[in-house]
Every structure is written in C-alpha cells, then in structure tokens.
C-alpha cells in the first residue's frame, strides 16, 4: 500500500446530513488508490450518510469532496458516475425487471446523447455478470431471486459501470458465508488486478479486519479511529465505538486481528 500517491477520493472539513440536520461534522478523510477501506460503526453513526455524500448522491452541507484531486461539485454528474460507482442501501427493487435489465442500467453514465447501447456495453455487462456469478441467472426476474442473489445483481450493476472507485453500502448483507467470501475475494481481485479503489460499509468486524487495508471507525458522525486493522481493532476502540467488551486475538489463518465478544 502506497501512502505517497495522491488520494483518489478525499473529504476536507466535510459536513453532511439530511435536510438541516447535521450527521457528519467537519470530517477529513483521504482514500489512496488501489486500497480497500472498511467503514465501521454502530447503527445511525453516519456511515451511509458519509458514503452517499462522498458519491455526491447527497448534497454536502459544508467542506469539500475531491475526486482525482478535483472538487466533485465541478464535475458533470455523468463524469462522476464514470469514475465512481455507488451501491446505496436504499435501492428499490423494480417489480418485474430482470437481472440483465438491472445490470444494463449500470451503463447509463457511459451512453451517448441518444442513449443507445453499443458493443462495448455488452462486454461490460457480460463481465459484470460473470464476476458476480450471475450469468446463469441473467434472465431471471429480480423479484424471483433470493435476497443474496438480488444483492449480487445490484453489485453487478455497479460493476457494469466500470469505474475506478467503488463505494458499497453493506454489500455483504443477505449473503451466505460462501458468497460473502466470494464477494470479499472479488473486491480483492478488483483491487489487485484491475486497480480499483473500494470503500465499503461493513458490520462484520472480522471481515473488515481480514479484507480491508484500512479501517475507519465512526461514531456519532465522527472518526474515532482510522488506520490499519491492527491499529483500529483493539479492545479499547471496540469499547469506545461500539460499547462492547471484546477480546482481540491473532487469527491463526490470516494473522490479522480477530475479535471475540466477551
């Protein structure tokens, strides 16, 4: 992990929230290229609010967000969507749509003024379906899929965008153990072989410890800890962030910290 390269995504003095309510206040964060960052914190701590504001889905209240060193507000919205893909928690399943139709939507930012699909779009959609293991389910209706299959379809839509940055809000929700592992491997593969930068909200701290290069812990909209998994996942931070009493040991398989509640 290089710390000298300029950040792909950065927040400077960022305040974010809903309507006039401030959820995240004066937050500064830099995300280095080709890294996986896990955002952790209790329910309501502002993880989704922060992620959506970084993606410019929510309008920021103060401060600024930089994408590739440029203020994100100055980029046209399709340009932002070509560089940064986001999977919100609030996605609505359109009744009757198929997996392929959903994935196709991921191509929207790349389409020309007449919004016609071209050959390259087909390739991107095919790769997205393959990476998420959904090729055999491509023509199934979303409302006929299991929760986990549907979650993978949303991820495939985000991948079809072919962006360099991915922001994923709780991507492992609904997934069984196998598919959680597959998703984490996919994220690592995207980072290592495609040079992607990923920021994701995770609730499973051991997953964060195992697969993230960096963990950012939020509580009440403030960063309480930020660093490598080993730096952040200590029993002290777990107490201050989550109010849990936990033991942190070394994972015999990965050597990463492993958290066990007491």
């Amino acid at each position: 992990m290089s710390t000298t390269e300029p950040p792909v995504l950065a927040a400077r003095g960022l305040s974010a929230g809903h309507a006039r309510r401030v959820v995240v206040a004066d937050l500064t964060l830099e995300v280095r290229p080709r890294t996986v960052t896990a955002l952790v914190g209790p329910n309501g701590s502002g993880k989704s609010t922060l992620l959506m504001t970084l993606a410019r889905v929510l309008r920021r209240q103060a401060g600024e967000v930089l994408l590739d060193d440029r203020p994100i507000d100055r980029l046209p919205s399709t340009e932002v969507a070509r560089r940064l893909g986001v999977l919100p928690q609030t996605a609505v399943v359109p009744t009757g749509a198929t997996v392929r139709e959903l994935v196709e939507q991921g191509r929207y930012p790349q389409l020309g003024p007449w919004a016609m699909l071209r050959r390259h779009d087909d390739g991107a959609m095919r790769r997205a379906l393959e990476l998420t293991g959904l090729t055999p389910l491509a023509d199934r209706r979303l409302d006929s899929l299991s929760g986990g299959e549907r979650q993978r379809a949303w991820i495939a839509m985000t991948l079809a965008q072919e962006t360099g940055v991915l922001l994923l809000d709780e991507p492992t929700t609904y997934l069984d153990v196998r598919h959680q592992i597959d998703l984490m491997r996919l994220v690592e593969h995207l980072r290592d072989d495609h040079g992607l930068t990923v920021v994701m909200v995770l609730h499973d701290l051991n997953q964060a410890a195992r697969h993230a290069d960096r963990v950012v812990a939020l509580r009440d909209g403030r960063v309480l800890a930020d660093g490598t998994p080993r730096e952040v996942l200590t029993s002290g931070t777990l107490r201050s962030v989550f109010d849990v009493d936990a033991l942190v040991v070394d994972d015999p398989v990965t050597g990463r910290p492993l958290f066990v509640a007491r």
Binding site: T78, A81, P88, T90, A91, P94, L102, Y108
Partner: peptide, 18 residues
C-alpha cells in the same frame, strides 16, 4: 433512460449520474 433509472430509487439513479 433517466426515467428507467429512477425506478431503481432516487439514490441509485443519482449514483448513476441521473
């Protein structure tokens, strides 16, 4: 296409640059 993206929810549509 923009209208179709809106059927996925406002946040997803905004994330797609709509």
């Amino acid at each position: 296409r923009r209208v179709e993206a809106l059927t996925l929810g406002d946040d997803v549509a905004a994330g797609l640059g709509v």
